[in-house]
Design a protein around this nucleic acid. Structure first.
Lengths: 108, 108
DNA sequence: CACTTAATTAAGTGTCAACTAAAATAATAT
DNA sequence: ATATTATTTTAGTTGACACTTAATTAAGTG
């Protein structure tokens, strides 16, 4: 899902939408009123954001309230952390392997 | 710079390049040998990654060694954290304002 | 200098995605 | 059922961008 998260965040307008819904839910039209783009454009962005797991929708009658989904951001942070953890782990294993190799030849 | 960082990370191939240089520096051609795309394509990706601050180049003769720049990733983590901090701060201020308003009317 | 190696820049192509207006869906009210 | 409100889906256009090959730069080497 990190693919979709990064793709969603890469678009400036989608980040602007996230800033808007960060403090509380907003309807699609309420969000659209803050920008100069059309309602369908906003709707399409919201779809991308929802499918990335960064926002959630709550339906109430004809209205749809969009709000932040914290787990989506947590996933991104995890991805960054793991990026380093994996690297360190592999470097550690390589060092241990090197150590074993040296011990082996030294004892011969 | 977060704009460039997110844009750089959104592209799968650039993430693949980052995985390669994560454990140590590699030349442009060494990176290219891991993929089926042309050397210029890799070079263009490296340019984007460098300008985003996610990688650094070290020149040595005709070779250019590309390596990870940790600060680039730190910046991204900061961005995510600040996303929440700013939100909480604004919600807190709004609550305090509300509190002041209620106290004011109560004393009248 | 001519040649080689390493890499980039330039120019051109095809695909994707951000937008628009118009049509369609969905829930509710008259 | 018809109308209204909120929103999405569809179809089409435009610009960005990930590629390609060809040309160019840069740094040694014989």
């Amino acid at each position: 899902m990190i693919e979709k998260v990064l793709h969603a965040l890469a678009e400036p307008r989608r980040r602007d939408i996230l800033y808007l819904v960060r403090d509380g839910e907003l309807t699609s039209s309420a969000i659209a009123s803050h920008f100069e783009i059309s309602a369908p454009a906003v709707s399409q962005h919201l779809k991308v954001l929802e499918q990335s797991g960064l926002v959630v929708v709550r339906r109430d009658g004809t209205k749809r309230y969009y709000g932040i989904r914290r787990d989506g951001f947590a996933e991104l942070k995890q991805y960054i952390d793991r990026f380093w953890d994996d690297s360190l782990l592999r470097l550690k294993e390589a060092a241990e392997e090197e150590e074993r190799r040296r011990n082996g030849t030294n004892k011969q």
